[in-house]
């Protein structure tokens, strides 16, 4: 529920009226079906190809088992995971910190149009690129290592959090704000006791969500040299060390699930 709201979906409508046959919509369905068939053919998606893949897949899976538990490998993995967590924590922290002012600037009900449009364009730009792509640029600019990953994830965090924060502010109930303004409160005080209480819970919600998402991505930026477990994973993969790949995969999944639990808890506290 919180997540639905965090990503801006409307609440499900309680519509019960069965619509009469809607021809334009039906045509759209048919069009979509034809498109799917056409697109699949251009991508060389065929049963033969899938059939060829299945034994390959079985072979692949067989080589994954048992997971590699050599001490050296585990230690290497632990280092990588720690670095991924560090990247996630720092990028979430600084990303959110920078998103607060940016989101405020992007809120159309508080700022003049030229300010909010500039801020919105900037967040749209930040949001457009997958963190791994942004990481490529930072690796070039500041070299291999965790910092490139952190900066890449900060960019992504700002793209999402600023947008959601701005939307939360735009949905603020202005009657409540006006009532606070009518007491003679300063702008800062109106912000603190009129606007923040209305957006705080949602904000905590999507910040927790972002921590989650940054952790997932922090395991991937290593593929392009952005630090974290991704480097070890990709190297093992390219060397066909599939048993070690499997160990790392299990660890990543475990960490992601734990972080999901943490993020649920955070949301509960700040409800």
């Amino acid at each position: 529920m919180t997540e639905r709201r965090a990503i801006g979906l409307p609440p499900p409508a309680g519509r019960t009226l069965a619509l009469p046959v809607n021809w334009p919509r039906r045509l759209a369905y048919i069009g979509l079906a034809f498109y799917a068939i056409y697109a699949a053919s251009t991508l060389d998606v065929s049963l033969a190809r899938i059939a060829r893949g299945l034994p390959q897949g079985a072979h692949f899976l067989a080589r994954m088992w048992p997971p590699n538990t050599e001490a050296i490998k585990l230690d290497l993995m632990r280092q990588g995971l720690m670095e991924s967590i560090e990247i996630a924590v720092l990028s979430t922290f600084f990303g959110i910190l920078l998103s607060l002012p940016l989101g405020l600037l992007a809120a159309r009900n508080l700022m003049p149009p030229w300010v909010s449009w500039t801020a919105r364009t900037l967040t749209a730009l930040f949001r457009s690129f997958n963190s791994v792509i942004v990481a490529i640029l930072f690796v070039k600019a500041i070299g291999f290592g965790a910092l490139a990953g952190i900066l890449a994830l900060i960019v992504g965090t700002m793209g999402f959090i600023s947008k959601l924060f701005a939307e939360a502010i735009e949905e603020v109930d202005l009657k409540q704000v006006e009532a606070v303004r009518a007491t003679g409160a300063s702008f800062a005080n109106v912000l603190i006791m009129g606007i923040l209480p209305q957006v705080m819970a949602r904000f905590a919600g999507f910040s927790a969500y972002q921590l989650d998402s940054n952790l997932r991505n922090s395991t991937m930026v290593g593929i392009v040299g952005g630090g974290g477990i991704g480097a070890a994973l990709f190297t093992a993969y390219q060397r066909f060390d599939y048993d070690y790949v499997f160990t790392i995969l299990l660890a990543i999944i475990a960490i992601v699930m734990v972080s999901e639990l943490v993020s649920v808890q955070i949301r509960k506290i700040f409800q």
Binding site: V45, R49, L54, Q56, I223, I253, M257, E260
Partner: peptide, 25 residues
């Protein structure tokens, strides 16, 4: 649902590239 989501797209891609070879499939 949780399991499919917690494996990143890139990880899924590595898996399927190993099975079906590189490419759009």
């Amino acid at each position: 649902l949780v399991a499919t989501r917690s494996i990143n797209t890139l990880l899924w891609a590595l898996l399927f590239v190993a099975i079906f070879g590189p490419g759009a499939l």
